[in-house]
Design a binder for these strands. Sequence first.
RNA 1: AAUGCAAGCUGUUCUAUCGCCCCGAUCUUGUAUCGGGGAGGAAAGUCCGGGCAACAUAUAGCAUCUCGCUUCCUAACAGGAAGGCAUUUAAGAAUGAAAACUUAAAUGACAGCAAGUGCCACAGAAAAUAUACCGCCCCGAUUUAUCGUGGUAAGGGUGAAAACGUGAGGUAAGAGCUCACGAAUUCGUUAAGUGAUUAACGUUUUGGUAAACCUCGGGAGUUGAAAGACCAAAUAGGCUAACGCAUGUAGGGCUGCUCGUCCGAUGUUAGUGGGUAGGUCGUUAAAGAUAAAUGGCGACAUUUAUAUUAGAUUAAUGAUAGAAGUCCCAGCCUUGUGUUGGGAAACAGAACCCGGCUUAUAAGCUUGCAUUUUUU
RNA 2: GGUCGAGUGGCCGAGAGGCUUAGGCUCAGCUCUGCAAAAGCUGCUACAGCGGUUCGAAUCCGCUCUCGACCU
Length: 131
Amino acid sequence: MNKFNKEERLCSKKSLDLLFKNGSSFLLYPFRVTYYFVAEPHLFPAQVVINVAKKRYKHAVDRNLIKRRTREAYRLQKEQQLYPNLLNRNELLLLSLQYVGKEKYDYSFFEKKLALAFKKLNTLIAAHENN
RNA sequence: AAUGCAAGCUGUUCUAUCGCCCCGAUCUUGUAUCGGGGAGGAAAGUCCGGGCAACAUAUAGCAUCUCGCUUCCUAACAGGAAGGCAUUUAAGAAUGAAAACUUAAAUGACAGCAAGUGCCACAGAAAAUAUACCGCCCCGAUUUAUCGUGGUAAGGGUGAAAACGUGAGGUAAGAGCUCACGAAUUCGUUAAGUGAUUAACGUUUUGGUAAACCUCGGGAGUUGAAAGACCAAAUAGGCUAACGCAUGUAGGGCUGCUCGUCCGAUGUUAGUGGGUAGGUCGUUAAAGAUAAAUGGCGACAUUUAUAUUAGAUUAAUGAUAGAAGUCCCAGCCUUGUGUUGGGAAACAGAACCCGGCUUAUAAGCUUGCAUUUUUU
RNA sequence: GGUCGAGUGGCCGAGAGGCUUAGGCUCAGCUCUGCAAAAGCUGCUACAGCGGUUCGAAUCCGCUCUCGACCU
């Protein structure tokens, strides 16, 4: 089952401040991914926030469309791509996906790019653990 | 019939799989199962007007902002309805030709320049108290075709705009200087109309500009749900009341100013409290929608009936696949409400709620106007 | 969600009803030089868009677009 509940979203203002102040980030077009680990175990191994700038997209319709496609891609892939690497850790991953693309793409593009982003994130986490 | 423009109306439907937000029910009390609901005509822009809430009691005066033909509608409005007037266009009839007239449509920030002040570039003699370039006239001088003192706004040319137009009298020449007819205009009387206004008569005046200052009349207290109310946990520099102290002082708040009013340093005692973060309410049933009847020219109002009801808060209403209908393009022959293949579907996403306005809109339908072609 | 401000050549920026707009920087050409720089001369390129008021609009008024700031 590929669910996506409120508990998997990052809503707390405090956590957001923590994430953007201390988190590390990388760019994988069209996403800018920011992540940070906190030592507070949660029902789910990760909480995510999706972000589209008002400056880049004037109309609310376009922003909603991008957010919905990103969310759908995240929902369908997190179980296979992201969660297995996190389950053995006793920490919560705070994750932010900022959309920085210039155009509107099809859903398949989102799916492909998000998979690549997950792959890169996993390697980075592994590297961090080894150090 | 086609195309274009303008105004108005509608603003695709169904199935499967995987999800999201809210509400209700059940018991196995868990990210459980079942059932129900889930964007718009503009949800947009935030351009106006209200409700609601807090602050203030100072809805005081001034300043500031805003509205501006009339009557009506409305909770209210810079909105709407009906009318008046003006301008433009078209047609009609009239005429030598126009103007005026009649009808229709469109447009109008449509109070006042006859309260005062300012401004009117360049050109032009002069842009508002007529300061006379050419021209016209009187008088004087003489070198006899020129000069000088004056008068004159009829003619010339300039300009966006030239001292109301035509004719006559008048005069040295001229001039609303006088008269007749006419144009616009102020005020008054009479008549019609609720009124704007219209008609007649008398009277006054004769450049434009108030989206120039301004005058007159009406309206606006300020802030905006991130307003505001409440809840439980823990710690302060906080708050309240009483007393004391000083000329209620320094200083500060209340709307920009005035006037007025309120608070008011430091000490003692008693009580209360919640920086920040979180949750609940505010928050979705309403000046609401649809239908009918009645009243009204109409906007709209009244009565009755009916069915419902988005409610998030890093912010739901989606993704994938398929089918049907609509429109467009191409092919086929059986030329049809045919069939096959390919494409298109706009503008745009609620965030406290309503009433308007404005702007954006594929495709279809309705109405009006314009152009072109064909037929009669 | 709400409140407010701005838009003038490639860039900065004055102008607040009247000559298609002051000045500086940049760019192009010429003069000067053996070649450049500096200096001098000449030139190019603008009122965000649409509509209205006015004889006349960058300026006044309305709508639209773009950019920016503030309220947590």
